[in-house]
């Protein structure tokens, strides 16, 4: 029910945006994230962007996983 997935904003017209969701283009509402821009990733829930995805934080989290995986590998 609270399912939401990241999508890339390709174009914006008024309050609506066309987003790329893994190769499929979907029209969504930006009513809840009026500050979203083309090129942003937004988290989409039932046709609305409920937040802008923080790409910097996403990369930082992945970096952390990579470091941990590397450390675990070296321990063996």
């Amino acid at each position: 029910m609270c399912l939401a997935i990241p999508a890339l904003i390709e174009s914006i017209k008024n309050e609506e945006a066309d987003v790329d969701m893994g190769g499929i283009t979907r029209r969504i509402s930006l009513r809840l994230t009026p500050q979203a821009k083309v090129g942003d990733y937004v988290i989409v829930h039932t046709g609305y962007a409920i937040n802008i995805l923080d790409q910097h934080e996403a990369r930082e989290t992945l970096k952390l996983f990579e470091q941990l995986a590397k450390a675990a590998e070296e321990e063996r």
Partner: peptide, 20 residues
């Protein structure tokens, strides 16, 4: 899918699992 599939990577999971 970007910012989705990366967070399903079984190889990346190993480190955090052994830390737990």
């Amino acid at each position: 899918m970007k910012f989705l599939s990366e967070f399903r990577d079984a190889g990346l999971a190993k480190g955090v699992v052994s830390q737990i």
